[in-house]
């Protein structure tokens, strides 16, 4: 028999969009691609021009050789990692208990996780300085103590991303049944959390962490006014003092963001999340 029995919804699903709609789709795509790629191309081109008359990676060499670059970069990486760790430590139990035992708290928690969008970074740092730079709550006395404060603030700023990521993850695995199943088999809650919930949340946790990393790594505003020598303020200085290095820096920074987002895309299969708040 020549007749196939493959299900026809699959086969007839796509009614091809009309030719004119495809033309407009392509036009929009190409124009916007141009808008988004030209600045990157121009920056990359500049980053290759540091040496007279030849294209090369001189600007990158100079950037990496700059004695301030590596300390700023590593400080930012450590800050980001610490903020992610803190954020996970706080958000995972919160999301878990809000899902399982304290559903009444959900609206409150969701409201609070919206705050980083409501309070602009520059306003937040303004308030932080007014609150913590004099007794009785002196927190910014030394560089190191300010740094701890910065990390805590970053962790708080990551709450919206982290909470949504973990919450979606918990919804996807039906955490209630898993927990009840584990309980009925005699597990206590530590075992449940570490042996049952965490392994099933790997993707959600990782994507929340990477998103936080991408946002925190080059953060400028808060670090600037708290006088921290991290990557953001370093990059801002660089644009004022150097000609070619900023282009190399922009490309490096773009690549880091791209990598974080690429990994999220890979592990979540395209369910990456919207962000906001610059």
């Amino acid at each position: 028999m020549t007749v196939s029995s493959n299900s026809m919804p699959g086969a007839s699903e796509k009614k091809a969009p009309s030719r004119s709609s495809r033309f407009w789709a392509w036009l929009i795509f190409i124009l916007s691609a141009a808008y988004f790629l030209v600045p990157l191309g121009a920056t990359f081109y500049w980053s290759l021009k540091a040496e007279k008359d030849i294209l090369g990676f001189e600007a990158y060499k100079r950037l990496f050789a700059d004695s301030n670059f590596l300390p700023a970069f590593s400080q930012s990486v450590v800050n980001a990692a610490a903020a992610i760790f803190l954020s996970l430590l706080i958000i995972v139990p919160t999301a878990y208990w809000v899902t399982l035992r304290l559903p009444k708290l959900r609206p409150v928690v969701e409201f609070i996780t919206l705050l980083p969008f409501v309070i602009p970074a520059v306003v937040l740092v303004f308030g932080l300085i007014r609150l913590y730079s004099r007794p009785p709550l002196l927190w910014t006395a030394t560089y190191e103590s300010s740094r701890v404060l910065l990390i805590c603030v970053y962790a708080a700023l990551s709450f919206p991303y982290m909470f949504r990521s973990v919450d979606n993850g918990l919804r996807a695995i039906d955490v209630r049944s898993l927990t009840e199943a584990a309980q009925s088999l005699g597990a206590n809650w530590v075992t449940i959390l570490f042996r049952v919930i965490f392994p099933n949340l790997r993707v959600a946790l990782l994507s929340g962490a990477l998103l936080t990393f991408a946002i925190v790594i080059g953060e400028l505003t808060i670090a600037l006014y708290m006088a921290q020598h991290t990557l953001g303020p370093y990059m801002a200085d660089l644009t004022r003092s150097k000609v070619y290095e900023p282009s190399a820096m922009a490309i490096v920074s773009f690549s880091v963001t791209w990598m974080a987002m690429g990994v999220i895309q890979l592990i979540t299969g395209g369910q990456g999340q919207a962000t906001g708040g610059h």
Binding site: T2, V3, S4, N6, M8, A11, S12
Partner: peptide, 10 residues
């Protein structure tokens, strides 16, 4: 016909 298989025939 979709590609080379029939979904409805005659």
């Amino acid at each position: 016909q979709f590609s080379d298989s029939y979904v409805v025939k005659d």
